[in-house]
Amino acid sequence: MAFAILGPALIRTVVDPKILYYSNLQITVFAGIVAHTAGFFSFRRIGNFPGVAAAGYIFPTFSLCYGFVYLAIFLFRIDYSSFQAASSLTLSILWYFGLNILSRRLDPYSLAVIPGGAVSRLGEIGGVNWHWLLSPDTVVDRVSGVVADLRADLSDDWERYIADRALSGTPVYHVKQISESLTGRVEIEHLSENTLGSLNPNQAYLKIKQLIDWVGALVILTIFLPLFGLVALAIKVDSSGPVLFRQNRMGYRGSVYKVYKFRTMKFSAAAGDEKEEAITKAGDARITRLGQFLRKSRIDELPQAFNILRGEMSWIGPRPEALVLSQWYEAELPFYRYRHIVRPGITGWAQVNQGHVAAVDDVLEKLHYDFYYIKNFSPWLDVLIVFRTIRTMLTGFGAR
């Protein structure tokens, strides 16, 4: 922090030794400390989530924290040093980029694995140096922890090994715990009280999030109302039919509601199997030329801001399914209904990790992502999803 905050100020003393006594510089230094501290803790929390290439989130995290702090200074018309502010942000980003590169080279993430039980599937998870232990006499230096299937019938020697590692200060992880932290998925094995209890979302944040959603929807509708008119006109010119697409979907706590989106498909009377009609396939011939752009850019999702104002949806949460598909998945997949314990979202953890899916096997994997989101329900995970959603909008990942 001293490098990023005090460095620019000390450099300027070469030109003007009295600059440290200027009130605008003192205010900017204090604001920089607040912004840097917020950026540090936010970056640490976001970096703990699976699949996060930490270096990629340094710039947006610190830019967002510095932006909020200096926006408040600007709105309150407080005099500040723009050079000090910009230099502090730049040096903070460069400092953490350097630390991240250095730590990855000097201390790669390594885990030792005790044989037995369900540990074999760990080999499919990348990004970790796995050390497969052959006997309790094996000594592995410089590992971040030891992984074992603690439900397996391990020998006395292995249990002593686990106890020794724990006493020496080495973290010991259950295979399911480490798998969740590395893949971002929670697999439900038994409908037990403890399992469902661990998936209860934070009720306080649930209410705060709804307020944030409502304010955000109001702001979006106010700012983008002219865009709505242009998109509506373009849809009418591109193809015949209504501007908005309406569909019954399964929502919060199992209630059915009608979702609103800009129409991206050719309008025609429903024909054939209702379930097949509700599934969007890769390269679906029903999608219009304009619809392809609206889907990739996610502009077609904006009318759902009205659903958010009505309390039916959130900006972030498990993606709602068409009613007929939801009923199908509920019949095929245990615990599927549990994903409705939070409000469905326009974007979500499964959406940014997996994209659009419809087959039952893929939906089961999606369900594991949804359970991870519910179990780790927090503003930090929501911020990470926002960052990834922006990337998705720029790349078109997962759109159909």
Rank of each mutant, 00 (worst) to 15 (best):
Ile162Gln: 00
Tyr173Asn: 06
Thr195Phe: 08
Thr195Arg: 03
Glu189Ile: 13
Leu191Val: 12
Asn194Ile: 12
Tyr173Ala: 07
Ile178Phe: 14
Ser192Ile: 03
Ser181Thr: 13
Ser198Cys: 04
Glu159His: 09
Ser181Ile: 04
Pro171Asp: 00
Gly197Tyr: 13
Ala166Asp: 13
Glu189Asp: 10
Glu193Asn: 11
Ile188Tyr: 11
Lys176Pro: 06
Glu159Phe: 02
Asp156Cys: 02
Val172His: 06
Asp164Ser: 11
Lys176Val: 13
Leu199Cys: 10
Thr183Lys: 00
Trp158Val: 01
Val172Ala: 05
Leu167Asp: 09
Lys176Ile: 10
Leu199Tyr: 08
Gly197Thr: 14
Gly184Gln: 02
Ala163Ser: 15
Thr170Asp: 03
Ile188Arg: 02
Val186Glu: 01
Ile162Lys: 01
Gln177Trp: 11
Ile178Gln: 14
Gly169Asp: 05
His174Asp: 15
Asn194Met: 06
Val186Pro: 05
Thr195Cys: 06
Leu191Thr: 15
Asp164Leu: 12
Gly184Trp: 08
Thr170His: 04
Leu154Gln: 07
Asp164Thr: 14
Ile178Gly: 11
Trp158His: 04
Tyr161Thr: 12
Val175Ile: 14
Thr170Glu: 09
Ile162Phe: 01
Ile188Met: 10
Leu182Tyr: 02
Thr183Arg: 01
Leu167Glu: 05
Trp158Phe: 00
Gln177Gly: 05
Asn194Arg: 13
Ser192Phe: 00
Leu191Ala: 13
Tyr173Arg: 07
Leu191Arg: 08
Ile162Leu: 12
Glu187Lys: 12
Glu193Gln: 13
Leu167Arg: 15
Ala166Gly: 09
Arg165Leu: 06
Val175Ser: 13
Asp164Glu: 14
Asp157Lys: 09
Asp157Phe: 07
Glu193Ala: 09
Glu187Trp: 14
Ile162Asp: 01
Arg165Asp: 01
Glu159Thr: 10
Glu180Trp: 08
Trp158Asp: 03
Ser198Phe: 00
Leu154Val: 03
Glu180Tyr: 06
Ser192Val: 01
Ser168Asn: 12
Leu196Pro: 04
Trp158Gln: 01
Gly197Ala: 07
Leu167Val: 07
Gly197Met: 05
Val172Ser: 08
Ala163Asn: 10
Ser198Ile: 03
Tyr173Met: 06
Ser168Phe: 05
Gly197Asn: 11
Thr183Glu: 01
Leu167His: 09
Thr170Val: 15
Ser179Thr: 15
Glu193Thr: 14
Leu154Asp: 02
Tyr161Arg: 11
Ser168Glu: 09
Ser198Asp: 07
Ser198Val: 02
Glu189Arg: 12
Arg165Glu: 10
Leu182Met: 05
Tyr173Trp: 15
Arg165Gln: 15
Leu199Trp: 06
Asp157Pro: 04
Leu154Ala: 04
Trp158Asn: 03
Asp157Ile: 02
Leu182Ile: 01
His190Met: 08
Val186Gln: 02
Asp157Cys: 04
Gln177Glu: 13
Ser198Glu: 09
Thr195Gly: 08
Tyr161Asn: 10
Ser181Asn: 15
Glu159Met: 15
Leu154Asn: 09
Lys176Tyr: 11
